[in-house]
């Protein structure tokens, strides 16, 4: 059987000529095919892209045995830290990447990878919510829209099916620090979520945009770029930067441990730091690049979109924190309680 599997592989894999290969483990539809083609044309490296649908699914499959098959992955902020702690990342020095200096200064010394030893910024954005303005015209500048909604929105809210983001936004709403171990605070968080749940219509991450466009939901927790796409598809939705705060996240291209094509991976990371290329991703995904000098290359509607340009008085967002094991257990229990 083993011989059979291996014999068939070369028949089905695309021919790898020239400068070798690069295997990227990536979110689907997060990188335009034209950009992949451009990289292949510039370097002669054959790129194979494999996809995952959540940070956790990627972690699970790398831990179950896929480490060593891929060169580059694109985890979110907290997942970079987890992967580093799990020993899944290789590191590089700034000298390996001629474009290292293009990284925007505020994204250089990030808490999840101080000094950028294993990762470079890919795209960043925020997670809050969007409201259909045909249904509700009131003030949406507060997280109460999700957790204590007005009558018009009751029973018509979609929340992301993602523990980290729901609990983080809930904590921000209550003014509780993330990874709190305080009993009263955790109890309050759980009670608040349990009281809010009857007002929610559904949990869904992949469907977050579609339910807004189709009208199944009148408000929904959503990523800013996703809300922009919903608006572009004709839904009269407005994305909110609530006054209590919101979640920011950043996806990062990382160098994986045991990368079979380490040199090509570094070329690829360097390629992504080129402003023109970072801008191409931004134009495609409607988030924001973490690279300086992208503005001249941005499409007009992306550069000026309300989703990526928070109002001047918007508060700062916060990353989802990585809790230690004992604390995480409490948050797991709250989540299970919420969904039982």
């Amino acid at each position: 059987m083993k011989r059979f599997g291996i014999a068939l592989l070369p028949l089905l894999a695309s021919p790898a000529f020239g400068e070798g290969e690069l295997k990227v483990y990536h979110w689907f539809e997060y990188m335009p095919q034209e950009l992949v083609d451009k990289f292949q044309a510039e370097t002669g490296i054959t790129v194979t892209i494999d996809t995952y649908d959540s940070n956790e699914a990627m972690l699970a499959s790398l831990k179950a045995g896929k480490l060593g098959q891929y060169d580059v992955a694109v985890p979110g902020d907290y997942m970079v830290q987890i992967m580093a702690e799990e020993g899944l990342l290789d590191s590089f020095s700034p000298a390996d990447l001629p474009n290292f200096g293009n990284i925007a200064p505020q994204w250089l010394d990030v808490p999840f990878d101080p000094g950028r030893k294993s990762s470079i910024p890919y795209q960043w954005g925020s997670t809050a919510f969007a409201v259909n303005r045909d249904v509700y015209q009131g003030d949406i500048n507060t997280l109460a829209i999700l957790f204590d909604p007005p009558d018009e929105l009751k029973g018509r809210i979609n929340v992301l099916d993602s523990q980290g983001e729901v609990l983080a936004l809930g904590s921000i709403y209550l003014g509780i620090p993330q990874c709190s171990q305080d009993r009263a605070q955790l109890k309050a968080l759980m009670d608040m979520l349990l009281a809010a749940k009857p007002h929610w219509a559904s949990f869904g991450s992949d469907t977050a945009k579609d339910v807004l466009v189709s009208g199944d939901a009148a408000a929904g927790m959503i990523y800013n770029g996703f809300a922009a796409k919903a608006r572009a598809e004709g839904a009269n939705v407005e994305y909110a930067y609530p006054k209590e705060g919101f979640v920011v996240w950043m996806d990062n291209a990382v160098l994986l441990k045991d990368a079979p094509n380490r040199d090509n991976a570094l070329k690829f990371l360097n390629f992504l730091l080129e402003p023109e290329n970072a801008a191409a991703v931004t134009n495609y995904a409607a988030y924001t690049a973490g690279v300086t000098g992208v503005e001249p290359f941005l499409a007009e509607e992306i550069r000026t979109s309300p989703e990526t340009n928070p109002p001047a008085d918007a508060p700062a967002g916060s990353f989802v924190a990585v809790c230690d094991e004992a604390t995480q257990k409490l948050y797991d229990a709250i989540w299970t309680n919420l969904k039982k």
Partner: peptide, 23 residues
């Protein structure tokens, strides 16, 4: 998940969460 809104765990989603979810 898609038609029921995923508001409550089913056996399938409960197991899935343990392997691929944040837990």
């Amino acid at each position: 998940d898609l038609l029921g809104g995923a508001k409550n765990f089913m056996i399938g989603s409960l197991i899935d969460e343990q392997f691929k979810g944040s837990q």
